[in-house]
Write a protein that binds this DNA or RNA. Structure first.
Lengths: 185, 185
DNA sequence: ATAGATTAACTAATTAAATTAGTTTAGTCA
DNA sequence: TGACTAAACTAATTTAATTAGTTAATCTAT
């Protein structure tokens, strides 16, 4: 016996990745942990609270992975490394990514804070491109849109063929960086 | 009395737009229509079925609006017109768009068919750009990613300031088209 | 016009899941 | 070792989806 909050979040994350967010319920989480459903309330405040925890845990993990991927690189190279890390995480954790999207609407101030950390990381990489024009917000918006849009739309295919999906994303990033150079440099 | 299936879908769509997808339940839909919850089963097979109908209705509406927006234009101009129509629909119907995203995972073959129509429309516009290279799939993926990614991420802000959001999208499209010209023309 | 078929409403009951209340048990530490 | 606390439990409540079975209203064809 004796479960920790981390174990609860982990169990919910695993169920999300294996069966999808819609299959995550306190019932199945409790079953996975071999405890009764109400016992979960010793660790979490509600189902929504648990899902937010899953999302936050995932967002922090993504931020860490992306930051590490960017280390030692700058400019286009760094942006591509980050993008690959982003897509790899989503391929490995589709259910957590689904939960992160859910948290985009059902999140709280902590959600916003972690999201801000993500934005700050990308801004750093944009700065490392040393563009003449400093319209960083426009470029940030474009890059985030592409990363999220591509990941969401191609996730189904990406799970079947990760290589191909990564190539496709890098190709799109290339095209966008060409446009950015043409417009802002 | 006497409700039609269309009225049920409309009621669910309205609730989604007003209060968000998570607030759509057969209970509140029935209340809005002044009938008892089980009576809804004369028109729909299940809650999931209803949500799929909401998504399909919305997807068809979007396709129509985008097709009309593209009429009389070609190339970059057509792509921008379509993009504005896309974003305008989402600003007007955030809950339906949320439902469409839900249907991306919980959809059926009909969902896929309507989505294919959307892709075919964009492919036509790409062809009208008369690019040297015919890597249409790469460009399709990039444009769809941008449209969906930008719309999802900026929806919160877009509801507050539609003008600004539209400008931002057009700006990103411009940059991407520059990159496409550089790479594929 | 009206019998029969169909549509769409109803009530009653079931199931499933989230949540709350109150209780018990098992380790921890003074 | 005895009180404290964390974390489990059972029992009960609430809410929503769904099913079954019934009835009323409309529509259709003679």
């Amino acid at each position: 016996m004796r479960i920790t909050k981390e174990a609860v979040v982990q169990a919910a994350s695993d169920i999300a990745d294996a069966d999808g967010l819609s299959r995550v319920s306190l019932k199945v989480v409790a079953e996975k942990l071999n405890i009764r459903t109400p016992s979960l309330y010793n660790h979490i405040a509600s189902l929504d609270d648990l899902l937010r925890e899953v999302a936050h845990h995932g967002m922090r993990a993504m931020n860490d992975l992306m930051a590490h991927a960017a280390i030692g690189n700058s400019g286009d190279k760094a942006i591509k490394s980050l993008s690959i890390a982003y897509l790899n995480y989503i391929i490995a954790h589709p259910g957590i990514y689904e939960t992160i999207q859910w948290a985009h609407w059902h999140g709280n101030s902590e959600t916003a804070e972690i999201f801000d950390n993500y934005k700050a990381l990308i801004v750093k990489l944009i700065s490392s491109c040393n563009l003449k024009s400093q319209k960083t917000d426009e470029i940030l918006s474009l890059l985030m849109s592409l990363l999220h849009g591509y990941s969401s739309l191609e996730l189904g295919k990406a799970l079947m063929n990760p290589e191909e999906a990564t190539k496709g994303l890098i190709n799109s990033i290339d095209t966008v960086l060409l446009g950015i150079r043409a417009k802002y440099d």
